[in-house]
Design a protein around this nucleic acid. Structure first.
Length: 500
RNA sequence: GGGCUGCUAGCUCAAUGGCAGAGCUGCGGACUUUUAAUCCGUAGGUUCAGGGUUCGAGUCCCUGGCGGCCCA
């Protein structure tokens, strides 16, 4: 601590950061390394815990191990020091450093140089303390990575914003943050396994697209220098996956990122992971069953049950068959009046006014019906529910309903009041598809920024013949919300946030 | 987009318009069985930024930045 005024140590830093830099320099001046090349670890903290589940109080094993971890708590006494190390998986284990084992110099170094948050390696005997705590009694310790910033206080919850902006700190401090990362990995792996078991092929389709399509959303635009033209970040992979089915990849899926140039807040992320899958000779009924199965398998993978425990401790049942309602059936029930796809626009406007829904004059009748549904019914759909049979004019890529004119064979899956996924019987007739695109072009001309542009190459593909097919899209982030009860920002490791 | 609201020490938070504080963290010391160790001592501030009102602003007003909640 003698070189506190060393010119290398900026004096405008907060006091605690200056001290930590000073300690780093002290380690270097002593000829040691504050950032070790490596440490010859022989066991993780979890492995030590697993191997010695129940030592007696004050027991010695005679077994030497080398462990590593981040210092989370320190309890130093005069000649015997305790610290709690934490491993990457969150497992904690106590280490002890005694004067008679490490000697006066290294014990003194420990007390002078080690801060909360530092990473260390410790070699010593596995013992239990006089209070029965499983411990490694150090014969040697090594600084493996000196932390120059202090950790937040462990006993007060971090601010939400700091957690999002500095997720690495959140991961150190909060088991739930680590659980989310691993649960998400488990769920995604489960999805891949589910599809591979069913004979599906995973593909990767373009993220940079000359024509964007497959969803109603505003795209991000970027510039491709080699072509000297703007290209789009994809809003959905749908049209490319259907090209795959044209080519004979009869069961195809993709798990990848989509980008939508919309609002930025705690419930919307401009980039989000999406699962889409398509199956030849399937319809929307088959696809609904399949989506239910793969979600239930994901729940089983992370919770060991179709009943998942949400972060607030409540249980949520994803098991069994799921309820199915129709858009207009559920809307009629909520209104107390019979409405259907033939209900006039004027009548729908009256219902909207009656229920305090502000009508955007740009809305087409089908859109108005959907908005009414979202206002009146959506929040009531807590248990998993397939909402079926949407108006044709809002669904340009979906096949007409097999029995009811004006409707299409599309469902949305609602869970806990939000939309988790959507599935269709796909529109495969290239002539009707061209008409639908032309209708979208008219909407775009009227100023609908979300209208779909006409995709000639996609139509060309359809003209070679797309087998009858069902398709499904589901947001991975939303799946994690459904499985954990957390908000979307908690499900994304590094959500985009406004610059500090 | 509209309304409400927050931003103060490393972290979590206090402070009628009148000396900017606490706990933990940090630093110095004591302690060979601690578990958020304890005990003694001590340091740490551009109160988000800029402007205004006032004898005096963390506090009141205006503009901007970054959040949160509610509404559309």
């Amino acid at each position: 601590m003698t070189d506190q005024n060393s010119p290398e140590i900026a004096d405008d830093l907060p006091e605690q950061m200056r001290f930590r830099r000073t300690k780093r320099e002290a380690i270097l001046e002593a000829g040691a390394e504050p950032y070790a090349l490596t440490y010859p670890r022989t066991a993780t903290l979890a492995e030590v815990r697993a191997k010695y589940p129940s030592l007696e109080v004050d027991e010695q094993t005679g077994d030497m191990v080398s462990v590593t971890g981040r210092v989370m708590f320190v309890r130093n006494t005069g000649k015997l020091c305790f610290a709690t190390l934490q491993d990457g998986d969150g497992t904690q284990l106590q280490i002890m450093l005694s004067l008679d084992k490490v000697g006066p110099e290294r014990l003194d170094d420990w007390k002078k140089l080690v801060d909360l948050g530092d990473q260390v390696g410790v070699t010593g005997e596995v013992i239990s303390s006089k209070r029965g705590e499983l411990s490694v009694l150090a014969a040697e310790w090594t600084m493996t990575s000196k932390a120059l910033r202090p950790l937040p206080v462990a006993h007060k919850p971090m601010g939400e914003e700091t957690r999002v902006r500095q997720r690495y700190v959140d991961l150190i401090m909060r088991p739930a943050a680590r659980d989310m990362v691993r649960n998400r990995a488990t769920a995604v792996r489960s999805l891949r396994d589910s599809f591979h078991e069913r004979g599906y092929t995973e593909v990767e389709t373009p993220m940079l697209q000359l024509v964007h399509g497959g969803a109603a959303a505003r795209p991000f635009v970027t510039h491709f220098n080699a072509l000297d033209r703007d290209v789009y970040l994809r809003i959905a992979p749908e049209l490319f996956l259907k090209r795959c089915v044209v080519g004979g990849i009869d069961k195809v899926f993709e798990i990848n990122r989509n980008f939508r140039n919309e609002g930025l807040d705690s419930s919307h992320s401009p980039e989000f992971a999406m699962l889409e899958f398509y199956q030849a000779y399937a319809d929307y009924n088959v696809m609904a069953d399949l989506l239910r199965e793969v979600i239930q398998e994901a729940a089983m993978a992370i919770a060991g049950s179709h009943v998942v425990t949400l972060h607030d401790g409540t249980e949520f049942d994803l098991g069994g068959q799921w309820r199915s309602v129709t858009v207009f059936g559920a809307l009629s029930e909520a209104l107390g009046e019979e409405v259907n796809v033939n209900t006039s626009y004027e009548q729908l406007v009256q219902y909207a006014e009656k229920h305090d829904l502000a009508v955007d004059p740009k809305w087409i009748p089908g859109k108005l019906a959907e908005e009414l549904f979202e206002k009146l019914v959506q929040h009531t759909l807590q248990a998993p529910t397939f909402v079926r049979d949407y108006p044709e004019d809002t669904s340009p890529l979906v096949r007409a309903h097999r029995s009811t004119p004006g409707l299409v064979e599309k469902w949305d899956l609602y869970v806990r009041g939000f939309e988790l996924g959507t599935g269709y019987s796909e529109l495969v007739d290239p002539v009707i598809q061209r008409e639908r695109f032309e209708l979208q072009a008219k909407l775009a001309q009227k100023g609908d920024a979300e209208a779909m542009p006409l995709d000639e190459d996609y139509l060309r593909a359809l003209e070679y013949g797309l087998a009858p097919a069902g398709g499904v899209g589901m947001g991975i982030d939303r799946l994690m919300m459904a499985l954990t009860g957390l908000g979307i920002r908690e499900t994304i490791l590094f959500p985009l946030v406004r610059p500090e």
